[in-house]
């Protein structure tokens, strides 16, 4: 790691102001992804602002029947929350499908959303990677890209976003609440937080520099059953090959794009009365596999159809 200065933020506004005033500043809360990347010098902050102990934790009902989850709430706390378990089980299921208990105890909601890709070429600093070294090229494009995206990729980047939690949040239509240095608070749908790679895969989110995620806000749960399913190479403690979150008629796919992929075509087909299998096939018409990751098409098709079926059964 490069040397850096460290401060523990006293309040959220102070944190965003410090971030705006300090070159090379980054927020840290759990640190489970940032430190991982700092050790490899993929991330090189000059200043860390610890927001882990700010009053951003806690889970509270919203007047509209939704739920507000503070950004520094640990993943474990969210997964175990009685309100989440009762009304947003897909969120709890998605969280416990990710990482390990130790990681979930440390990782926060905000950090989970902002975790960076697990693409092996992004992690290997001897290889070209447009996300890590813009303009150097994408090693995965012609490489061992079994786990690459099938939606929304570009020739500059074919990586996937690997958060499980974000897939559930996308299905639930969650909003992300952010605070800017100006003191202005803003909400953005989770699926708009992320940018597809295009020509600038190094720009990953719609956040402005120094914006701090303060909370995730869930609307009231949609009618119908909820379920999260993930397929992976190892039974636990492994990234996914594909995942699907279903919340009533809302469906999101994971590990298929550089963002949690809201399956709008599937949702429209389901609403029009299509079978789960037909509905997911509509979505996959827009997929662009690369060869080594062709299997993701049938995998997503089967996994999603089974999950939608099961959710329907639960919602009935």
């Amino acid at each position: 790691m490069r040397p850096f200065t460290y401060e523990r933020a006293v309040d959220a506004l102070g944190a965003v102001r410090s971030a705006a005033a300090t070159p090379g500043a980054r927020f840290i809360a759990g640190g489970t992804n940032l430190l991982d990347l700092m050790k490899l010098e993929i991330e090189q902050p000059q200043h860390l602002i610890d927001v882990g102990r700010l009053d951003l934790a806690g889970i509270a009902p919203m007047p509209d029947g939704g739920l507000r989850i503070g950004a520094s709430t640990s993943n474990s706390t969210v997964a175990a929350d009685p309100q989440v378990l009762a009304r947003y089980p897909v969120l709890s299921q998605a969280i416990v499908a990710g990482g390990s208990p130790q990681l979930r105890n440390k990782a926060t909601v905000g950090g989970n959303l902002l975790q960076r890709t697990r693409c092996a070429y992004f992690y290997d600093t001897t290889k070209p990677c447009n996300k890590r070294a813009p303009g150097s090229g994408c090693s995965a494009l012609e490489g061992l890209n079994r786990n690459a995206a099938i939606f929304g990729a570009s020739t500059a980047c074919i990586a996937t976003h690997t958060s499980d939690m974000a897939v559930a949040l996308a299905a639930l239509g969650a909003q992300v609440e952010t605070l800017a240095a100006s003191g202005e608070s803003r909400t953005t749908p989770v699926i708009d937080l992320y940018r597809l790679p295009g020509d600038t895969p190094q720009i990953e989110t719609s956040l402005a520099a120094g914006d701090l995620i303060t909370a995730v806000v869930l609307p009231p749960p949609p009618a119908g059953g909820q379920i999260y399913r993930k397929a992976r190479d190892r039974a636990s403690y492994a990234g996914g090959l594909a995942s699907v979150a279903v919340a009533g008629g809302q469906v999101a796919l994971g590990m298929v794009a550089l963002k949690p992929w809201r399956a709008h075509a599937t949702e429209a087909a389901l609403a029009a009365g299509a079978s789960p299998t037909e509905a997911i096939a509509r979505e996959l018409e827009g997929a662009s596999p690369l060869g080594r990751n062709d299997f993701k098409l049938p995998l997503v098709a089967r996994l999603s159809a089974a999950a939608i079926q099961e959710a329907n059964g639960r919602g009935a």
Partner: peptide, 13 residues
């Protein structure tokens, strides 16, 4: 009282 990976945390935190 909570288990974590001590490698992914800074002492100063």
């Amino acid at each position: 009282g909570v288990r974590i990976n001590s490698c992914l945390s800074l002492a100063v935190m």
